[in-house]
Computed example of a mutant assay.
Amino acid sequence: MEKMKLKMLYSDLKQDIDIIEKELEKALNSSSHLINEASLHLLQAGGKRIRPVFVLISAKFGNYNIDEIKNIAVPLELIHSASLVHDDVIDNSDMRRGRYTVKAQWNNRVAMYTGDYIFARALEYVTSIENQAVHKILAHTMVEICNGEVIQIEDKFRLNQNIKDYFRRIKRKTALLIESSCELGAIVGGAEPEVVRHLKRFGYYVGMSYQIIDDILDFTSTDKQLGKPAGSDLLQGNITLPILLLKDQPKIQKFIAAASNGFVTEDERLEMLEVVRNSDAIKKATVVSNQYLLKALKEVEALPNIPMKKKLRDIALFMGKRKY
């Protein structure tokens, strides 16, 4: 339902989004039957396609040409998809969006090679763009995403981390790719440098807000809404903002100790969810997300007054206020 509402917000871009979908299918075509199957499995899981949408909208602030814009929208979505495949191996996740992950459907080895293949196709796809600045930004984005994945492994079950550690991690995990989507869409679209800067900052702020909400929803949503068990982040050792705000509570410490040893009962999981949901950590984390959202909206206000300006604002508000 939430995904449907979001798609309605950018329904006038449907024709170009359909072009992106077809290009994604083409990009994932491989001579390997196994990689084809695994890639198609991932693509059919769908997704909000937030990153390509931000590319398209940002390009509207310049000289919009879908035949050029698709050459950056597709690789950005491919990079996101590849990072999800790798994340599922790192986190030992069997479910994503209510479907079996590539790792669960096949195995870790197939998942890692599939993720690597998708990364490689992203690089191959972007070679049609001559602007060296685009390649430099994209390369930096990929390096930082990989750094983020390693840091996430190092930080698993580590309670002595602080909020700055968390912010740095979610910047690499989520915000950076959304920031790059906005920046690169504007650059490829030929937008003015000042407009590019505002869109880049917008992408960073809305990406941070989006990930914090995602981390909150992991505790407040139902298993059905999430398509996986609520509290999965903590079960996998990922210490998110709500838990950082509760890390001194004995019950939370006890649960993390049990989870790190792989011994958590269903009753313990439900008790942990109750503790988090009844605390003030959810409200405090929401305040932080809203602070980032307000910064994003401020960047939107500084943009030229074209129809896409309101759409950017509406999508940002939806992302920052979604329920699951």
Rank of each mutant, 00 (worst) to 15 (best):
Met8Trp: 00
Leu13Asp: 09
Ile19Cys: 01
Ile20His: 00
Lys22Ala: 01
Leu24Pro: 10
Glu25Tyr: 00
Lys26Trp: 01
Ser30Asp: 07
Ser32Tyr: 00
His33Arg: 12
Leu34Ala: 03
Ala38Asp: 08
Ser39Asp: 01
Ser39Trp: 06
Leu42Asp: 08
Ala45Gly: 15
Gly47Phe: 05
Val53Ile: 15
Val55His: 02
Leu56Pro: 02
Ile57Gly: 11
Ser58Cys: 11
Ala59Gly: 07
Phe61Arg: 02
Gly62Val: 04
Gly62Thr: 03
Tyr64His: 12
Asn65Lys: 07
Ile66Ser: 12
Glu68Leu: 09
Glu68Phe: 07
Asn71Leu: 06
Leu76Ile: 15
Ile79Asn: 06
His80Gln: 05
Ser81Gln: 00
Leu84Phe: 06
Asp94Ile: 02
Arg96Asn: 07
Arg99Ala: 02
Tyr100Trp: 02
Lys103Phe: 12
Lys103Asp: 13
Arg109Glu: 15
Arg109Phe: 11
Val110Thr: 14
Tyr113Val: 05
Tyr113Asp: 13
Tyr113Ile: 08
Ala120Gln: 03
Ala120Arg: 03
Arg121His: 03
Glu124Ser: 14
Asn131Asp: 14
Gln132Val: 03
Lys136Ser: 13
Ile151Leu: 07
Ile151Thr: 15
Ile151Trp: 00
Ile153Arg: 04
Glu154Leu: 13
Lys156Ile: 01
Phe157Tyr: 06
Leu159Asn: 09
Gln161Thr: 15
Lys164Pro: 06
Phe167Ser: 01
Arg168Thr: 06
Thr174Val: 12
Glu179His: 07
Glu179Ser: 13
Leu184Asn: 04
Leu184Lys: 02
Glu192Asn: 10
Leu199Ala: 03
Val206Lys: 03
Gly207Val: 15
Met208His: 08
Met208Arg: 07
Ser209Cys: 10
Thr222Leu: 06
Lys224Arg: 13
Pro229Met: 00
Gly231His: 07
Ser232Trp: 09
Asp233Arg: 07
Leu235Arg: 10
Leu235Glu: 13
Leu235Lys: 10
Gln236Asn: 15
Gln236Lys: 15
Ile239Trp: 03
Leu241Asp: 03
Leu241Gly: 05
Pro242Val: 01
Ile243Phe: 02
Lys251Pro: 06
Lys254Gln: 14
Phe255Gly: 10
Ile256Pro: 04
Ala257Gln: 12
Val264His: 04
Thr265Arg: 03
Glu271Leu: 02
Glu274Pro: 10
Glu274Ala: 14
Ser279Glu: 05
Ala281Glu: 08
Lys283Asp: 13
Lys284Gln: 14
Ala285Arg: 02
Ala285Cys: 09
Val288Cys: 05
Asn290Phe: 07
Tyr292Cys: 12
Leu297Trp: 05
Lys298Cys: 06
Pro304Gly: 08
Lys309Pro: 09
Arg313Ser: 15
Phe318Asp: 11
Phe318His: 11
Met319Ser: 14
Lys321Leu: 07
